[in-house]
Design a protein around this nucleic acid. Structure first.
Lengths: 350, 350
DNA sequence: GTGAAAGCGCTAACAT
DNA sequence: ATGTTAGCGCTTTCAC
């Protein structure tokens, strides 16, 4: 309309580059670079003119281009791979990591793979192609050795919730086995001997650990496994509910249930409600749930601490990025048994 | 150790580049590029040798570098800015968007700003510097006009949950006002006239809309506002609980409560429990909560549909990226009243 | 079919 | 204090 500069005055203007800023400020490219990166070897006058030009053009540096050449070649970006960002446990981990990343100016990719082994590698690859500086992952494949090459280039990995196989790296996990033991012992101490176990998919390491803790504790108490149903490979609340319904209406009805994952617990609660058994059969769940204290009876759980797990995982990742070369280790975050009522129900004599 | 090639044989090997692949395959850089990008103008032999070299070296192309020059210059990356990825509503939206993005090979940055106006702009900027192809945001500042420049460069924005101010762009929102009206009418139809309103921060557009729906419905019923407490600017469940405690132990105790956000509802439920009033005072909440059906009484809510909202927002963003140039519009996703008990309690005569 | 040269937006290294 | 040159890893352009 007014004062057409040149033909680039189109509907979609070009995003200004450092070159544009340099031209407007009447300095060289490098001077703009110095001002933008606060390198402090620029005269007041030049610096002022450059900053004015930056503002006038609305210039924002392209981090990709900068990082391409910059030493270290960081993208200031990390990746997170979890089962699902919609799962409350993963969502809390996600948030804790984001908090730590944000204070360092690092952005976070989050990716869900629904515990599908087929989707783990592609999900990881998608992030690696974007050259994330590091990766925090909850894995489900048999082995994570496909990460060895990337690890050799210096990309750090931190595994959360489950330990990796086929690669050595830091891991941050809950004390799955001991947590399950504690829950089981709690039920035994309340007089139960027929305790059912409802478990997540047995190809998931943490699920196996929880199972192990349960079995071990039964053994310690001299209770033959086989006294009560032991059902694994449940996945999702719908399947868990249906399975619990069947179990609870069968001859082998237990007096107590240990459900080893948050969605499974939800399914079990629904089943107990539908059968009016929530005050008759004891229940302890692994993983806390929002509003678990507001149920009737309150839900007794072995709670993990997702915020701590996420914060610690981020901590380890950034330590590695900062040059920490200690041997990899697994950090175990303790669980805590929270008594709210459902786990303190004593065996009912029918 | 064995056959040291050159001095680059260090502890941390260099990540292989296209150049390395070219050297190993005995072809030029460009030929490798053609094979990697499946440009189909390469002889069988060359193509084969290149693919072998790619595998042998474990070469993965650097997307940043490619996109720097590539026409269109996409990063295949989008950004999401929400209140908190740990909030169940936002987590579901997040997941729905991720699903849509994944099918297109697009990665998703998620960023939380806790409804802090001060953190909105920096959070957005951090994503823009990384040159996301587009942005989906839940905003809290007075105006989003700071995005106008970026919009002029062709970056599409889709606003979720709250409509933007100072910029025209697609928005996907729940029918906040009508949802609140429906909830309020439901309580009125059950005989309530002293209905308290507990609202989120009034600088949040959706919170104001819900408030408006409530007030409008009271008006329609000829109920003077002022008959019951109207408290806004609550934020978080702790504050809501304390406020509800005060209100419920005062002279102006209502017979019903409309709580206009999920965390506020949690606070109100806790307060009702502590006072043993959960079966005496009616409660309808805005936003569904996991396990709301398992409470006693079940929680009656006006439910939003976060999965639909997320899916629709992603849909709009990708449509814009695919060249859709229709005028921006706001898509309203209906809410649904779910009766579970707490909202069907009739007024108690003391 | 293939490759050499130029360039994307920026920073490192070396001028001056 | 500032500019110049080269180059990050890749794609584009255009020549062969």
């Amino acid at each position: 309309m007014s004062s057409p500069r040149d033909k680039s005055e189109a509907a979609t203007p070009r995003r200004p580059t450092m070159k544009d800023v340099a031209a407007l400020a009447g300095v060289s490219l490098k001077t703009v670079s110095r001002v933008v990166n606060e390198e402090r070897l620029v005269s007041e006058g030049a610096s002022k003119r450059v900053r004015a030009a930056v503002l006038q053009l609305g210039f924002h540096p392209d981090e990709r281009a900068g990082n391409l050449r910059r030493a270290g070649r960081r993208t200031d970006t990390i990746g997170l791979v979890v089962s699902s960002v919609a799962n409350p446990f993963a969502a809390s981990v996600n948030r804790a990591i984001e908090n730590a990343a944000a204070t360092r100016g690092v952005a976070l990719f989050a990716s869900s793979m629904d515990d599908d082994p087929e989707r783990e590698h592609p999900a990881v690859d998608a992030l690696l192609r974007r050259r994330v500086d590091g990766l925090i992952l909850t894995t489900v494949r048999r082995s994570q050795s496909y990460l060895l090459a990337e690890q050799s280039y210096g990309t750090p990995f931190v595994f959360v919730d489950r330990e990796p196989v086929g690669i050595e790296a830091d891991a941050v996990v809950s004390d799955h086995a001991n947590g399950a033991s504690t829950a089981t012992r709690h039920l035994i101490e309340h007089g139960h001997r027929r305790i059912a176990f409802l478990g997540d998919r047995s190809d998931i390491q943490s699920a196996r650990e929880r199972h192990r803790g349960f079995t071990r504790e039964l053994g310690n108490a001299g209770i033959p496994s086989g006294d009560a149903p032991l059902i694994v490979d449940l996945h999702g609340d719908a399947v868990a509910e249906a399975t619990a319904m069947t179990m609870l209406t069968s001859d082998s009805r237990p007096t107590a249930i240990f459900s080893s994952q948050n969605l499974i617990t939800v399914g079990v609660i629904r089943a107990l409600r539908r059968l009016g058994l929530q005050h008759s059969i004891a229940l302890v769940g692994f993983d806390d749930l929002p509003m678990a204290d507001l149920l009737d009876p309150g839900l007794t759980v072995v709670a993990q601490h997702p915020e701590s797990i996420g914060a610690l995982a981020a901590d380890r990742l950034f330590a590695r990025l900062d040059g920490d070369i200690q041997p990899p280790r697994t950090f175990v975050v303790p669980t805590v048994l929270i008594l709210r009522g459902s786990g303190e129900i004593v065996p009912q004599t029918p």
